[in-house]
Write a protein that binds this DNA or RNA. Structure first.
Length: 432
DNA sequence: TCTGGGGTCCTAGGACCC
DNA sequence: TCTGGGGTCCTAGGACCC
């Protein structure tokens, strides 16, 4: 029995755990020299800054900055810069998530570096803060990754709490707003553009309406919100008031579309190189497709020139429907190449292309076409063998000739750190 | 001149996320 | 020389059906 004079209600609460500057922290795990140093991590092709340690941010390195604009400062030793090493980040993410799963039976992995935990089983609510700190300590000790933790009655409030925890040192990276008298204060000090689900477009609109903070937004009228921000906005506003509307997604469903697109390491002008790149991207997409046991009903391909350059621009896309959904790489390459044939124009310098597999269905439910003469069982065995070899001996061990061998257009990663945790030949060396 | 009404399905485009 | 990649959800509007 709860005591008579207690006003608190032991309602639902969720924690949001977010890895601090995740990619930069990953680089530090196997390279202790980098501790407390400014570290930035670059996107594919060493294009822009996608992660920066707080030391790097303090020195004025800003997310989204093209690398060429900061290259000089990096050479001068103002920061350590790394190409993206997704193999390493993926592996460390898995370790973090495994650790987190011990703290709640209900966890939603929200992104590579974030997870929501249902705290239903953690009572009384006075324990939330200590529990958050225990999560933080454990993840740090077991994986080497620093995290911040926000707790609230809803996911949106947990996001607000985490946002404040990350920024204000005196919280030590953990803030609980569930059942807290500071909730309103927290909403009042959160600019509306920092609210989860408010992007730059709605932020601009809300500012014009005089809605400047999360608190203002939480007090907006339902019908007005629904009219201007659809039901998505309404759900968000209710969450800010402490009413759970966005449920936890514990078992992610298979993806509805699979996309592989990349900028080239050098501009492409020839049809042959474009065909190679698209064949390569299609192979990667087909691997993802088979990993989730789906088949694709349609292939979309697109290509584009570099919009930042002052030269003739062209971009287009096209969709090819398959007669029968397929997960077979060579068949998908054939359709993708046919699509590129429709789109390709000489006289342009192409910067990027991509392949999107859509109309996905479970591979067990493929509707066979009466006139389909293809040996489906044979190609299925071939794909299984291909995937097995590539899993065992490393990605790209077996590839399609259509993707080319020299691949001068391949994305550049000049500053990649070793894949310490997943490659025997790139293990870290201790001592010496 | 005046051309129903309601339901469903699909797609393109917009908004958002990390 | 050099500017990322991969997703989701919702809505409006058109096609189509009775």
């Amino acid at each position: 029995m709860s005591s008579m004079n207690s006003e608190r209600t032991d309602g639902p609460a969720v924690a949001l755990v977010d890895c601090t500057s995740f990619y930069a922290s990953c680089e530090r795990v196997f390279n202790p020299k980098l501790a407390d140093k400014p570290v930035v991590v670059l996107s594919n092709n060493d294009g822009i800054v996608v992660a920066a340690s707080k030391e790097a941010k303090a020195k004025g390195f800003v997310l989204g900055t093209p690398f060429f604009e900061i290259e000089e400062r990096v050479r001068a030793g103002e920061a350590y810069a790394f190409s993206s090493n997704y193999t390493l980040y993926g592996d460390l993410s898995r370790r973090v998530m495994e650790t987190l799963s011990l703290f709640s039976p209900d966890m939603e992995i929200y992104s590579i570096d974030e997870a929501f935990l249902n705290l239903r089983g953690v009572t009384p609510p006075e324990r939330f803060d200590a529990y958050g700190r225990e999560i933080q300590r454990t993840v740090r000790r077991w994986t080497g990754i620093p995290v911040s933790v926000g707790i609230g009655e809803t996911k949106a409030l947990a996001k607000i709490a985490q946002h404040i925890a990350k920024k204000s040192p005196k919280t030590g990276g953990v803030l609980n707003l569930a059942g807290s008298p500071y909730r309103e204060q927290a909403l009042a000090r959160t600019p509306v553009e920092d609210v989860w689900g408010v992007g730059w477009r709605f932020a601009k609109f809300l500012h014009r309406q005089g809605i400047l903070t999360a608190l203002d937004l939480s007090r907006a009228e339902d019908s007005w919100v629904k009219k201007h921000m659809t039901v998505v906005g309404l759900r968000l506003v209710r969450e800010l008031r402490g009413e759970p509307c966005i449920s936890m997604d514990m078992a992610p469903s298979p993806k509805q579309q699979i996309c592989v697109s990349r900028s080239f390491g050098k501009l492409i002008t020839s049809r042959r190189e474009m065909d190679e790149a698209v064949a390569e991207y299609t192979s990667r997409a087909a691997e993802k497709l088979r990993r989730q046991h789906s088949a694709a009903g349609a292939v979309m391909v697109f290509l584009m020139t570099n919009r930042f350059r002052d030269e003739p621009q062209y971009s287009d896309s096209t969709v090819i429907e398959l007669p029968v959904p397929s997960d077979c790489t060579q068949e998908l390459i054939r359709y993708a190449t046919a699509g590129i044939g429709r789109l390709f124009r000489t006289g342009y310098r192409f910067n990027k292309a991509g392949v999107v597999l859509t109309g996905l269905v479970p591979d067990t439910e493929v509707q066979l076409d009466l006139f389909d003469t293809k040996d489906r069982e044979g190609s299925r065995r071939l794909m299984r063998a291909l995937d097995e070899v590539n899993t065992r001996l490393g990605a790209g061990t077996l590839r399609y000739a259509a993707a080319g061998t020299i691949q001068r257009w391949r994305t550049k990663f000049k500053r990649r750190s070793p894949r310490y945790s997943t490659r025997w030949d790139e293990l870290p060396v201790a001592g010496m």
